[in-house]
Design a protein around this nucleic acid. Structure first.
Length: 568
RNA sequence: CGGUGUGUAGCGCAGCCUGGUAGCGCACUUCCUUCGGGAGGAAGGGGUCGGAGGUUCGAAUCCUCUCACACCGACCA
């Protein structure tokens, strides 16, 4: 490809609304352009990268025995009615009607369509297992699209769906896909971790996320220092503290805390250890009744855990201040479990405290020396808090570390949720009709591109992992218009490289050297070959890797071999 | 969805408070010089200031409405 025939559209300045580095660099390098919030055009350079990722994904899916197909973006509402998701899926589902007033939506995912296909095409257990995938545009009307293609509304996803006669078969395919996903992200040169995850709105029993480690990630993931244990923080259990709760030493005493409405204010004003305080949050249960959730002052509530408590349910609804004031008699900031007549659920760490400080359910007042059982009779214990760095790992080995991750893949064991709702069954060996067992597997293809940049860049621009690079080698002739020797050598190399199967980008523009260097580095092409009169006088060209290291002067005859070796 | 903020040329911004009919840098066009790290000079093209309404002799500037976009928040009691 010649630059003179290619839309090379770089920006010297960073667009003001791009927050994260990948978004900035994708705009500056001319990979994408915004059309509307969360909706982007992939320019020629960007599309080449996207296709590279697709290619790796496609190869690994094929290798894992999945078959590629293509399903529609526009989906009939009636299939979503069947699965029950037409009403359950929130405003993220973009719905509309056609000219006949029939309901349709833009596919945010394709369980309904694939299940519809499977039920009409698969009739016998003998046809199973079967695994289908597609690489296709999805639309989710995100509340808050951000970070460019990282959280876009329209995005490219690889989604796969497997069908099985029994759980054992699903289990087998699930782990085969787990392996395939690891292969994909390894081949793309990403630093990633598979982590245990919540199954969320897709439903099902068992699930792993594939997280690319990056500070700009939107998920917290936890690892054990001493084992393979890794999980999304949403799911990581906090172990109850070891040993017996210390015995009560102090009497319950009320003290005035006017104007102190946060734990931070309270502990600094009265010189109390934050670990000796508890805070009380109120949520609404399914019968609209208040439930008190009690945590140690320095801990955070894990909403997923709270949603899983009996009688609570998702989504978690926090009680508003007015309701709490009416029912309990105090405002936020002065709440506590002592003397409370609502249901009380106490996190294990809070339940392990003796002589703790808590709100007195009277504005501007707190208790010190509070104790469970003695001062609070009816309460239950549960794991409610988010784990923190340094907690013992739930696997029993080591302690937990927390890092940020970008979710680029997610695999689920769905079970029979969709096949039952949509009546997708096969005849088993006994001639009995049984619902097919399903798995589903997603990769955010466009998000992978952004995630790769988050992990691979420097102050000059993108440093593509080789398998993702839009071109493998950049030919940069200097002063080609005037120098016959430069022009001839450049054309020779261009032909030789192209014939050798390399993807070559020839910067044949009549630009100054500095411009060409800066732009090639911004775009991040892995290897650069500079052809200039200076080195040509010695029969050499200059070859450098984008990733770093010194540029080398190489004989023209050896240029191809050197480039290939740098790419290997 | 709530809060905050911003919309002036393709991009980055100034002008707005103290109304008088638009400016800078980059990019773009032409010419000259330059040519190993985002060149220098000269001459140009391009916007009626997100949109609508209002106040005024006069509105980018003041007022009202509206649209769009961004950031923060959506447990931390």
């Amino acid at each position: 490809m010649r630059a003179s025939q290619f839309l090379l559209s770089t920006l010297k300045e960073t667009p003001a609304d791009a927050e994260v580095i990948s978004h900035q660099l994708m705009l500056r390098a001319g990979l994408i352009r915004r059309v509307a919030a969360g909706i982007y055009t992939w320019m020629p350079m960007g599309l080449r990268v996207l296709r590279k990722v697709e290619q790796v994904v496609r190869e690994e899916m094929d290798r894992a025995g999945a078959q590629e197909l293509s399903m529609p973006v526009v989906q009939p509402g009636e299939l979503w009615e069947e699965s029950g998701r037409w009403s359950k899926y929130g405003p993220e589902l973009c719905r509309f009607t056609d000219r006949h007033e029939r309901d349709f939506c833009l596919g945010p995912t394709h369980e309904e369509i694939i299940t519809h296909l499977a039920r009409s095409e698969l009739k016998s257990y003998k046809q199973l297992p079967m695994n289908f995938y597609q690489i296709q545009t999805k639309f989710r009307d995100e509340i808050r699209p951000r970070f460019g293609v990282m959280r876009a509304r329209e995005f490219l996803m690889k989604d796969a769906y497997s069908f099985h006669a029994d759980m054992a078969s699903l289990e087998q395919t699930y782990w085969r896909m787990h392996e395939a996903y690891s292969a994909v992200f390894s081949r793309l040169g990403l630093d990633f971790r598979p982590v245990e995850a919540d199954t969320g709105s897709i439903g099902g029993s068992h699930s792993h996320e594939f997280q690319v480690l990056a500070n700009s990630g939107e998920d917290d993931i936890v690892f054990s220092t001493d084992s393979d244990y890794a999980a999304n923080i949403e799911l990581a259990p906090a172990l109850p503290p070891a040993g017996e709760r210390p015995a009560a030493q102090s009497a319950l005493e009320k003290f005035a805390t006017p104007g102190l409405t946060t734990i931070e204010d309270l502990v600094s004003a009265h010189d109390i250890a934050i670990e000796q305080t508890v805070k009380t949050l109120f949520v609404l249960d399914q019968d609209e009744q208040l439930v008190a959730l009690v945590l140690r002052g320095d801990h955070r509530l894990n909403e997923i855990k709270a949603e899983k408590l009996a009688g609570i349910g998702a989504p978690l609804r926090m009680a508003d201040q007015a309701t709490v004031k009416t029912r309990v008699g105090a405002s936020f900031g002065s709440l506590g479990p002592v003397g409370l007549d609502t249901r009380i659920v106490v996190d294990h760490a809070a339940a392990h405290l003796a002589d703790f400080v808590c709100g007195a359910n009277e504005d501007g007042m707190h208790f010190s020396g509070a104790n469970w059982d003695r001062d609070v009779a009816n309460y239950e214990c549960a794991d409610l808090r988010e784990v923190v760095a340094g907690d013992p790992s739930p696997c029993g080995k080591g302690t937990l570390e927390i890092r940020r991750g970008i979710e680029v893949g997610h695999i689920f064991q769905l079970g029979t949720e969709y096949s039952q709702a949509m009546n997708a069954s096969v005849l088993n060996e006994q001639g009995k009709s049984v619902p097919m067992v399903m798995g589903c597997y997603g990769i955010g293809v466009s998000r992978v591109v952004a995630a790769a940049i988050e992990q691979n860049h420097d102050e000059r621009g993108i440093i593509w992992p080789r398998p993702m690079a839009p071109f493998e080698v950049a030919l940069v002739p200097l002063n080609m218009a005037k120098s016959e020797a430069v022009a001839t050598t450049t054309e020779q190399l261009y032909s030789a490289f192209s014939e050798a199967g390399l993807e070559v980008f020839l910067d044949d523009r009549n630009e100054r050297p500095g411009v060409k260097f800066a732009e090639m580095e911004l775009i991040g092409i892995p290897v650069r070959v500079v052809i200039g009169d200076r080195s040509l006088a010695e029969g050499k060209v200059e070859i450098a890797s984008r990733a770093g290291g010194e540029a080398e002067l190489i004989d023209i005859d050896a240029a191809l071999a050197t480039v290939q070796q740098k790419l290997a």
